[in-house]
Structure formats: C-alpha cells, structure tokens
C-alpha cells in the first residue's frame, strides 16, 4: 500500500503532505527534509527511486528479524518524480509496483493540469485544498481507488468549482516560470501502465 504522498518544491518547502498513518508533525517534517536531501542530490539521468531515508531505513532494518511476510507491511520504496519546480514523492510498501507508481504520479499531475489548465506551482500553493481533493479521488487510505483521468477530474469537480489562480499573482511571480505542463512530456519517461 501507499504510506505517504508528498509534494514539495525545489527548496524543500512542502506543498502537499498526506500520510496514511498518523505521524507526529515534527517527524513528518524530518522525513520530508531527509527525502528532500536525497532527492536534491540526484545526478541527472538517475532512476526515479530513492534509497530509504535514514528515518525509514532505521525502522526497516530493525525488522529484519520478522518474517518476509512482515516485510510487506514496512515501507520499502520511495518513488519520486520531478516536474518543473516540484517534486512528487510516494512512499510505499513492496506490494506496490514501482513502475506503476511512476505512472500514478503522472496521472496525478495530469489531473491537476486538467483542473487548473496549465498547472504551475502557484496554483498548487494557493489551492492546496484542491490538491487534497484530487489526491482523495485517487487514493483512499493508502489504496489506489481510481486511475482514470476523466473520473478523477469529474470527482473533484463534483465537489465544487476549482478556484483559479489569483489574477494579480500571475505567472511572473517568483520566477516559477514554465509551469508543470511543460514538464509533462518528460520524453521517454512515460510508462504505458494505464
């Protein structure tokens, strides 16, 4: 299952945090910063999987005693994807398919792109309720419930209108730039898992 879904930007500022187990705020923050350190040190052309951050590695090694079965409960995979200024992270157990998770992030970003029309980081900053709503249409309690783009978008829209980006903030603010839409292509990185 999926243990956490995180979005943060290139400076490590969280834009969305969703933990499917209850976790202290301080530990959440530490985990985020550990993952950010890992993710920001990736050489170009490396794979979309991270080694376990120290916090998780510590807890998973202490479990080596238990059977292989128990291992299925322990988060063992950190998948990430980078779009423009943002990093999308999924922490999951070994029961998820690594390549499918890469696709899942793609679906999420595409859904956001549809909802916001050319989504950029600013949209996500100011509409984080919509971020949660979109994620809620895809994942419930750590289990994927929907991967179909139309249904996800329809589900979010059914909850009310999606706010547009504040007019006066504009695209120029903070040099956020090209927006995520430009990053969607990620040539050759798209799996046809769906």
């Amino acid at each position: 299952m999926i243990n956490a879904f995180l979005v943060f930007n290139g400076q490590g500022q969280p834009r969305l945090t969703k933990f499917y187990t209850q976790l202290d705020t301080s530990i959440q923050q530490r985990l985020i910063s550990e993952i950010f350190t890992l993710v920001s040190n990736r050489p170009p052309g490396s794979c979309n999987f991270l080694p376990l951050p120290p916090l998780l590695a510590a807890s998973s090694t202490s479990n080596t005693s238990s059977s292989a079965q128990e291992q299925n409960d322990v988060p063992s995979l950190v998948t990430y994807r980078n779009y423009a200024t943002l990093y999308f992270i999924i922490i999951s157990t070994s029961t998820e398919s690594p390549l499918a998770l890469i696709d899942l992030i793609q679906v999420y970003v595409e859904a956001l792109d549809r909802l916001f029309e050319n989504v950029c980081e600013l949209d996500l900053i100011f509409n984080f309720e919509t971020l949660h709503a979109t994620l809620g249409e895809m994942i419930v309690g750590g289990v994927v419930v929907e991967t179909n783009l139309e249904r996800i978008v329809a589900g979010v829209k059914a909850q009310g209108t999606v706010a547009k980006r504040p007019v006066n903030e504009g695209r120029t603010g903070g040099g956020i730039g090209s927006g995520l839409g430009a990053g969607l292509g990620m040539g050759g990185m798209v799996w046809h898992g769906r």
Partner: peptide
C-alpha cells in the same frame, strides 16, 4: 534486533500502538 524483537512480542501481547510505530515508521 533485540529491541525489535522484544517490542514486537510485547506488541503482539496486545500493547501500545505507539511502540509499534516506533518499531517501523509509517508502517500500517
């Protein structure tokens, strides 16, 4: 290991949720 073992055994004996969480972060 020893710690893990003991905590998991106490966990199985029906004990504290917190302890379990310490044992493995994020684990469901």
């Amino acid at each position: 290991l020893a710690a893990g073992r003991s905590s998991s055994s106490t966990g199985k004996a029906g004990a504290i949720k917190k302890l379990k969480q310490q044992q493995a972060l994020l684990k469901v």
